[in-house]
Computed example of a mutant assay.
Amino acid sequence: MTDALASEWLKLRSVRSTWYVLGVVAVTVPLAAFLARQGVDAWDGLPPARRAGFQGQAMEQALLPLVQLCLAVLAVLAITPEYATGMIRTSVTAVPRRSALLAAKAAVVAAISLTAGQVAVGAVFLACRAIVGDRPIPPGYTTGVSEEIPLVLASGLSVAVIALVALGLGAVMRSTAGAIVAVCVLLFVLPLAVNLLADPWNDRIASVLPSNLAAQLVDHPSAVGGLPPPGALAVLSAYVIVALGAGAVVLARRDA
């Protein structure tokens, strides 16, 4: 297993796409700082009467879907190009236990995405808090730093969850474009579609969507949905188990 892990780590760090993806993730920090500066300038120019209606979403949450998508792309590229080039045959020859091969890919993707997610979300949070200072800009900057740390950590964890789901989708679909489109539907299309549903189904379905689970995991006041933290953790785990389980079954049963 150690050799498989080393091999998968070598594959990911030796391709340019990995560094391109991580570069885009890194760009979210100055982008967030720029947007926060713009928001602060707008806030400072408003009279007190108009500040109550000002909306300034926390940048770490506004840009979280972008970070999730970037690491999901990295996860998809950890497996689908091997099918496109035929290198998957070499991989399964080197690691005959296909479940072990997928597990090695999952471990490497999880480590990279968790690290990158936590660093990016944390850096955006700290940079924007420093820029905003003590301005009580609603709704994203009315709480203290210590109160937001659990949500920041949960958001970084959600990046790894989405990446592992994307890896499973890549193993099932064997198509880079198809897997990325599926992730985009999960992250962007479904949340919008759920808003069109009538009560109470919109809230019930929204509560189990990946985009809403991080806040429920730490019982944050901004959480959409009514899942308790253990329930949110169970749903997050289910996403990973189902996606990787399906990927393992397809990888084992289909010819490389």
Rank of each mutant, 00 (worst) to 15 (best):
I180T: 08
S207D: 00
T18W: 10
V159F: 03
M87I: 06
L114G: 00
P230F: 13
T28F: 09
A94G: 13
L209H: 00
K11T: 02
I241Q: 09
V67P: 08
P229Y: 10
V159H: 02
I79E: 04
V95P: 01
D44W: 12
R13W: 10
V224K: 11
V73H: 06
A104M: 06
W43S: 07
R13F: 06
V161W: 05
L164E: 08
F125T: 00
P81N: 04
P221F: 05
T142M: 09
P200E: 04
S207H: 00
C184P: 00
W201E: 03
A154D: 05
V29M: 07
M173Q: 13
P150C: 07
G56P: 02
R254F: 05
L186Y: 01
L187F: 06
V121L: 11
L126R: 03
R37H: 15
S99L: 15
V194N: 04
S146E: 15
R129A: 06
I149E: 07
V189I: 07
L31Y: 14
A52P: 00
A116G: 02
G245D: 10
E147D: 15
V218A: 03
V152I: 11
G133N: 06
G247V: 14
E60R: 03
V132L: 10
G170N: 11
S237F: 14
V132F: 08
C184I: 15
L102G: 08
A179H: 05
A42S: 15
G86L: 07
T2D: 14
T90S: 15
Q216G: 02
L5T: 06
V159E: 02
V250G: 05
I112L: 11
I88T: 12
L157T: 11
P191E: 02
T142L: 05
V185Y: 06
V92T: 11
V183Q: 03
L151D: 09
L22M: 13
A33V: 11
M87V: 10
A111M: 08
T142E: 12
M173R: 12
A163P: 06
L217A: 07
V194H: 02
V119E: 01
G247K: 11
L151T: 10
V145A: 13
P65T: 03
A130K: 03
C184A: 15
R37M: 15
V27P: 08
A160E: 05
T143R: 15
T176Q: 13
A111N: 07
P230H: 12
A26G: 13
